[in-house]
């Protein structure tokens, strides 16, 4: 459906709105047909709505939704439709009628339908069973843990960091004191484009020659990022770097609300330091080729690059105060 695009940033609400509008249109059509004495039988209305939802999820949403999620959505929507068609006794009787008519074989047509059902349903079940027993050459499903729990402490360059309490030493205000609110106010706009709030102000533009303190550290973090990380994580930190598609899964998309925006800064520090190889057992299957950056960067450089990632994506690290 190229004429109606999914608009980045609004896609989740767009999907729900489109589904809501579709249901409303169905209800209006049904209401009009009922008024005209040509109402759609409840059985077919229910089946039709369910098929519509499945087709919508399969063909409208891009990139494709994995089958496991479509199966969940399909089951829930089937339950919803059951609740609708059996919500009142009259509706339930109306819904059941075509099925009972076929089972009772009240006419020649219904009898033939019953015969067809008696042949097709066992065949379909048999086919399903046969298919499920066929050898498959597909890679197995992986229940990958995207965010494995970090350890309580981590040792980087010989120093132990307690992840629950440690703070980014560069997340400071003009007085050099740790200040999350101060730094949060200086990140890029989170809306589309991720623009700097004031490009002429050294307090907001890390590349301003007069940038000091936090913004200067962000620039230094950016330099480290573009020297080391952007090949995989991309210029826009969206996981679409030059080498990204050499890997499966592709590198993490930091602009997604489900990655660094969900994590404490110390988690990212630990993850960057230890890389894929340092993931704990629960992270299996690890499926991460990120090198342990502690072998290439200093502790300070890791803190700065983490801070840059938050600055650039417009997200705030998770805190609990």
């Amino acid at each position: 459906m190229t004429w109606l695009k999914l608009v980045e940033g609004y896609m989740p609400m767009q999907m729900i709105s489109e589904l809501a509008c579709s249901i409303l249109v169905f209800a209006l059509i049904n209401w009009s047909l009922n008024r005209a004495g040509m109402g759609i039988p409840k059985f077919w209305a229910g089946v039709g709505v369910w098929i519509y939802i499945q087709l919508y999820l399969k063909y409208r949403i891009y990139p494709p939704i994995p089958f496991s999620v479509r199966a969940i959505y399909g089951t829930v929507s089937a339950c919803g439709i059951f609740m609708w068609v059996s919500g009142s006794e009259d509706a339930w009787q109306e819904f059941k009628r075509p099925v009972i008519n076929v089972m009772d074989g009240i006419s020649g047509f219904h009898k033939s339908m019953r015969t067809v059902a008696l042949i097709v349903i066992p065949l379909a079940l048999g086919g399903f069973a046969y298919n499920s027993f066929l050898p498959s050459f597909e890679e197995p499903i992986e229940l990958r843990t995207v965010h494995p729990a970090p350890p309580a402490t981590t040792k980087v360059h010989g120093k132990t960091f307690v992840l629950q309490v440690v703070e980014n030493p560069y997340r400071v205000n003009n007085e050099g004191k740790y200040d999350q609110a101060y730094t949060d106010a200086r990140i890029v706009e989170q809306a589309m484009g991720r623009l700097m709030k004031d490009v002429n102000d050294p307090n907001y533009n890390p590349w301003d020659p007069n940038a000091e303190g936090y913004t200067k550290y962000v620039r230094e973090g950016g330099e480290i990022f573009f020297q080391n990380c952007h090949f995989c994580h991309g210029d826009n930190l969206n996981g679409r770097g030059l080498w990204a598609y050499a890997f499966n899964p592709i590198p993490a998309n930091f602009t997604d609300a489900g990655t660094i925006a969900q994590l404490q800064e110390t988690f990212v520090f630990w993850r960057v330091s230890k890389g894929g190889i340092g993931l704990p057992g629960e992270g299996f299957p690890w499926a991460s080729v990120m090198p342990p950056w502690e072998q290439h960067l200093t502790v300070d450089e890791i803190w700065k690059v983490v801070m840059f990632e938050y600055w650039h994506t417009g997200y705030y690290p998770r805190t609990w105060d």
Partner: peptide, 10 residues
């Protein structure tokens, strides 16, 4: 194209 789905991820 990645672990997070751009529509459902949210």
């Amino acid at each position: 194209g990645g672990q997070q789905h751009p529509v459902l991820g949210n």
